[in-house]
Amino acid sequence: MFAVYAAEPKPDDPLAALRVGERPDPVPPEGWVPVRVRAASLNMHDIWTLRGVGIKPDRFPMILGCDGAGVLADGTEVVLHSVIGDPAWTGPETLDPKRTLLTELYQGTFADTVVVPRRNVLPKPEALSFAEAACTGTAWLTAYNMLFDKSGLRPGQTLLVQGASGGVATALIQLGRAAGFRVWATGRSEQKRALAEELGAHRTFEPGARLPERVDAVFETVGRATWSHSVKCLRPGGTIVISGATTGDATAAELQRLFFLQLRVIGATMGTREQLADLLSFLEVTGVRPQIGQELPMERAEAGFRAMLAGETAGKIVFTR
């Protein structure tokens, strides 16, 4: 079958590991189902896989792609939940120490067909296109978890989104506006700030800018480049919710500010199947749709990877079949 895959780990030149070609058809284990992929979205996690981060060398070649939407053998249209937990685990799968993602142990969604546990498929709302549904499993699910389960915010309060054009950031802006929060965002260029405002941000700022007032919560996916600014932007008792560090770990934890101002720092990783079901319902009820910055046939996947590596994103990058 056709697939986009990582041939081997290339820490210093990830695109050198990228291949577009044929791979063996998957054979579903007992309790797993094949899904004919119609659309799949790109995540930074796929870049890390090409670098060999979070995956053992003996797992290569590895078909890339955590997220997707497609069709079961009986014609049912479905959305994929990419967090695969231990069947014996009874709590939230994001807390399962044995959890994994597609592309870490199991082949991913950038292919004609992917196989997943039966519980990892959810009905696709008719109102969502396959491309829109394919954006929900990682970036949008993470944003939903950060905003509605981790932050403790109430409608009417003010939040700051750092780095306004990535998949999680654009999702936070759209979800936050729809839920009644006052949404501020930072962006590295006028174009990125304009995009944030188009998506619903009430105000936008250059990175590191002094804000008109301190905010109730900051949403972090950037890390080192924005961490100090995030801490300084919070009101006493405020919250930072962090789900990534694309520029690396912070060089200083700002511990004095954390304890003196009684700030909270909360981590978020993906979300549960139940949260994904709630997110799909939220999108259906509100009419909010994921911002797709680029939609490409899967055969042109390399162009999407290059755009992500260069930071040329304006929402999600989606590959279609």
Rank of each mutant, 00 (worst) to 15 (best):
64 L>M: 15
135 C>P: 11
82 S>E: 08
123 P>A: 15
38 R>I: 04
126 E>W: 02
102 L>V: 07
63 I>D: 03
43 N>H: 10
38 R>Y: 10
129 S>T: 15
65 G>L: 11
129 S>D: 09
115 V>Y: 08
87 P>I: 12
116 V>C: 13
115 V>S: 12
101 L>G: 01
64 L>S: 04
66 C>S: 15
60 F>C: 11
98 K>M: 06
37 V>K: 01
117 P>H: 12
93 E>G: 09
67 D>C: 08
92 P>W: 05
46 D>T: 02
104 E>I: 11
40 A>W: 03
82 S>A: 09
97 P>E: 10
111 A>F: 14
62 M>H: 04
35 V>E: 05
79 V>N: 01
133 A>S: 15
44 M>E: 13
90 T>E: 13
79 V>T: 05
71 V>T: 15
56 K>Q: 12
76 T>E: 12
63 I>C: 03
111 A>N: 11
120 N>L: 11
131 A>G: 11
65 G>C: 04
114 V>N: 15
37 V>D: 01
39 A>M: 05
46 D>E: 14
99 R>Q: 11
32 W>V: 07
131 A>T: 10
135 C>G: 09
49 T>A: 07
47 I>S: 10
109 T>H: 13
121 V>C: 13
47 I>R: 03
69 A>N: 01
99 R>G: 00
61 P>Q: 12
95 L>V: 05
66 C>W: 10
37 V>P: 03
44 M>S: 12
52 G>Y: 04
120 N>S: 08
117 P>Y: 05
65 G>I: 09
52 G>L: 08
48 W>A: 11
106 Y>I: 02
103 T>E: 14
58 D>V: 03
77 E>Y: 03
119 R>G: 07
73 A>S: 13
88 A>P: 05
130 F>A: 05
96 D>K: 05
132 E>R: 12
53 V>P: 00
119 R>A: 14
34 P>E: 08
73 A>V: 04
